[in-house]
Design a protein around this nucleic acid. Structure first.
Length: 276
DNA sequence: ATGGTCGCACGGCGA
């Protein structure tokens, strides 16, 4: 079974490319972030044509997450338990459309693979080190971790994939120039953000791409601005973190950098993981 | 040429 995660940066603007990529990649499951739409204008037909079931969680032009699967899509959950809400200056806090999960692999599993629960996650950006979105980001991650750890504690054989846009570059080699980020005082590389990410690893979750693709120079995101992609100035901020039981069935993992090329590309590349 | 982008929705925000 092949699972993937991809921040598409608007599903409607990217519909043709997403449909082409699904065909080309032969992924059984795709976790999507930044659909940037609501159910009313979600491109349901795209997935129907391709032969995938799809579940979506989005209620405005911001955020939005989805999971498409051709190997079953069961027990869909929108938001995780105790997912923090955000409201500017604490006013009218809402749980944003940043997390959806489903059990996949329950049907058409030709090679006999076992089901797993996959999460499609769009971690809050943080915006700036002194912005109120930064403590929100850190709290969001800690609540997610607490939930995921509880699942594995309850069942050490739990097959859990935490996939998506984490908006964190956990190591210096995950950005093209660490000094640039320090000089500019940018987010994604600060110690608290990195601690929030490493807490998942300390809890047993495994970044399944890094062992197969050591850095530096391995990225999943390149800003549209300043010719970052042709200049190979990227960031590795999209991850598949696998629970211990799931990590042991990973046979391959890679970043589809080709998809970042050409007119109409998302600023993120898909991350693909092969399971036995 | 020392800048250079997108997508939302149609002014300015978010990334």
């Amino acid at each position: 079974m092949k699972i993937a995660t991809w921040n598409v940066n608007s599903l409607r603007a990217r519909a043709d490319r997403v449909e082409d990529w699904i065909e080309r990649s032969d992924a059984d499951v795709l976790a999507i972030q930044e659909t940037k739409c609501k159910d009313d204008n979600f491109p349901w037909e795209l997935f129907e044509r391709a032969g995938y079931d799809v579940a979506h969680f989005g209620f405005s032009q911001w955020n939005g997450v989805a999971i498409a699967s051709r190997v079953g899509l069961d027990d869909v959950q929108r938001t995780f338990p105790e997912q923090p809400a955000f409201g500017k200056n604490g006013v009218d806090p809402v749980q944003e459309a940043r997390a959806i999960s489903a059990v996949v692999g329950t049907k058409n599993s030709s090679s006999g693979e076992k089901p797993l629960r996959i999460w499609s996650l769009y971690v809050p950006n943080g915006r700036a080190l002194d912005d109120e979105h930064m403590p929100y980001k850190l709290e969001w991650l800690e609540r997610l971790r607490a939930h995921a750890v509880a699942e594995v504690d309850a069942d050490p054989a739990a097959r859990l994939a935490l996939t998506g846009d984490w908006n964190i570059a956990p190591q210096d080699e995950d950005v093209w120039d660490m000094q640039y980020f320090l000089d500019e005082g940018l987010t994604h590389v600060s110690p608290p953000e990195r601690e929030a990410f490493h807490a998942f690893e300390a809890s047993g979750f495994v970044d399944v791409v890094r062992p197969r693709h050591p850095g530096p120079g391995v990225y999943t995101y390149w800003d549209y601005q300043k010719l970052r992609f042709p200049k190979k100035e990227g960031m590795r901020i999209d991850f598949v973190l696998a629970s211990p039981a799931l990590a042991s069935s990973v046979t391959d993992a890679w970043i589809d950098r080709e998809e970042r090329k050409g007119k109409g590309a998302s600023d993120h590349a898909p991350v693909v993981v092969e399971l036995d």
